[in-house]
């Protein structure tokens, strides 16, 4: 754990990714400086939130999962072997806790409501449809097209692109852990997902996306 310090990126250099900043924050925290961790919490909470929500965790429970993920990070600050991988650690921890929350929620629901139509096709506890963006945001035609095009992708692709959009581009290695895609295939899978999305977008008309 000490030997990895020199592997940390140059703090003064520009172009640090979220993953880099997470590594720095953990190292600083271990050295008794808690400020960088606070900044990391501000910056990475949205990514954790959407990771947890993508697993189907209900709103209130998702807040607790995110909160306890940060607590777990602090509790394990001294034992996370590789600071460089702390973003991945966060995402994996959040995702596992999310699965656990979903499992418990289903068990609870089952105990409470043994409905006759509670079949695998119609589980009672599955979340309702994905929430929609604000109507105001969707008043932009390109946003409408982007959103509806995204819905045409396989679910896994949707989840991947949503999360990747929230992180810095080179952080995909860590996102891959959260999505549970093998390291070897994540790049091409993201490429495929993004390529599919661009193809669908192109079919909608000649829009400039830049």
């Amino acid at each position: 754990m000490t030997g990895s310090r020199e592997a940390l990126p140059d703090v003064d250099g520009s172009g640090l990714t979220l993953g880099d900043r997470a590594a720095i924050a953990l190292t600083e925290y271990r050295n008794g400086n808690h400020q960088a961790l606070g900044e990391l919490v501000r910056e990475a909470t949205p990514l954790l939130w959407h990771t947890v929500r993508a697993q189907g965790v209900e709103h209130d429970a998702a807040e607790d999962v995110v909160q306890s993920t940060w607590v777990a990070l602090v509790r394990h600050a001294e034992t996370i072997a590789e600071p460089k991988a702390v973003l991945k650690w966060l995402l994996v921890t959040a995702k596992r806790a999310a699965w656990e929350a979903v499992r418990k929620h289903r068990d609870d629901e089952k105990r409470r409501t043994e409905l006759p139509d509670d079949s695998p096709e119609h589980p009672t506890s599955l979340p309702a449809k994905d929430p929609l963006p604000d109507a105001q945001v969707l008043s932009d035609e390109r946003d409408r097209i982007l959103w509806s095009s995204l819905q045409q992708l396989p679910r896994r692709c949707q989840e991947l692109l949503r999360l990747v959009s929230l992180a810095d581009r080179p952080d995909y290695r860590y996102i891959s852990a959260a999505i549970g895609m093998p390291m070897g295939s994540i790049g091409s899978t993201r490429g495929r997902c993004l390529a599919k999305l661009r193809t669908i977008l192109d079919e909608q008309g000649d829009f400039s996306w830049t």
């Binding site: 949205p46 959407h50 945001v137 946003d143 830049t210």
Partner: peptide
């Protein structure tokens, strides 16, 4: 640009 726009939509949706 698509990913940047998508990030805004994701934030807005949830």
């Amino acid at each position: 640009a698509v990913l940047t726009r998508l990030a805004r939509l994701v934030e807005s949706a949830d």
